[in-house]
Design a protein around this nucleic acid. Sequence first.
DNA 1: ATTCTGACGTGGG
DNA 2: CCCCACGCCAGAA
Length: 109
Amino acid sequence: MATDIGFFKKVHQVAAKIPYGRVTSYGALAKYLGSPKSARMVGWAMNASHNNPDVSAHRVVNRLGLLSGKHHFGGTNLMQQLLESEGVVVEENQIQNFKKYFWDPQKEL
DNA sequence: ATTCTGACGTGGG
DNA sequence: CCCCACGCCAGAA
């Protein structure tokens, strides 16, 4: 049923709305979904989002702006390249001016 | 069925 | 400042 939306699906739907050139954190998404302590699941959901072309998992990083999930992007610096191609500055696997690029679903959605 | 692990975050010592 | 433990849910062995 379409009403059977689980945590993963919710994550996918929100993640799919992350604007171009913006990033957010797993915790922020989790919090928006009503489970601030389920940040891990958000990351897990990203793993499942490989089937969802609408979900850009590379725009989701941990709360420090670290590309913690880059190892799941083909195993190379693909994630960083994608971000940089969107105008996001990434250095040492960490997003610079993270706060500036940060997209808060609670605030902007 | 049980156990462990995993793209995290917060809190306590 | 650093280290450890807990919570959360799903999937794999």
